[in-house]
């Protein structure tokens, strides 16, 4: 059996990739995908820790998180589409109407 430590390490790596992705990428869609990566890293950690503790709780939580993530996708894509309609391009650097 693969030790739990491997899974948690992978999850930490995925989470870090997600955070870095959000910070360095400029396309809202890619930023959004990076956020999804962070959520899925948390899912992996939940499942791994749940298995380690011998409980089902961790896996049940993942279902809730997936539901929330799906709802978030719906809202997020709707907002991105609304902006794309108004400007014909999407780049977070263009979102500079308001600053300071």
């Amino acid at each position: 059996m693969v030790p739990v430590g491997y899974y948690t390490t992978l999850s930490a790596v995925l989470f870090t990739i997600g955070v870095v992705g959000v910070l360095v990428r400029r396309n809202p869609l890619v930023i959004f995908m990076s956020i999804e990566l962070m959520l899925n890293a948390a899912n992996l950690a939940f499942v791994a820790f749940g298995r380690e503790a011998g409980q089902l709780d961790g896996q049940v939580i993942v279902f809730f998180v997936m539901t929330v993530a799906a709802a978030e996708v719906a809202v997020g894509l709707a907002i991105i589409v609304a902006i794309f309609r108004a400007r014909q391009r999407i780049n977070v650097d263009d979102l500079n109407l308001m600053r300071w």
């Binding site: 978030e72 907002i79 902006i83």
Partner: peptide
């Protein structure tokens, strides 16, 4: 639109944490 986008991206980012 811009405020929704900023709120959403940063809020979802915070959710990840």
């Amino acid at each position: 639109n811009e405020s929704a986008m900023k709120y959403f991206l940063l809020g979802a980012f915070a959710t990840g944490f």
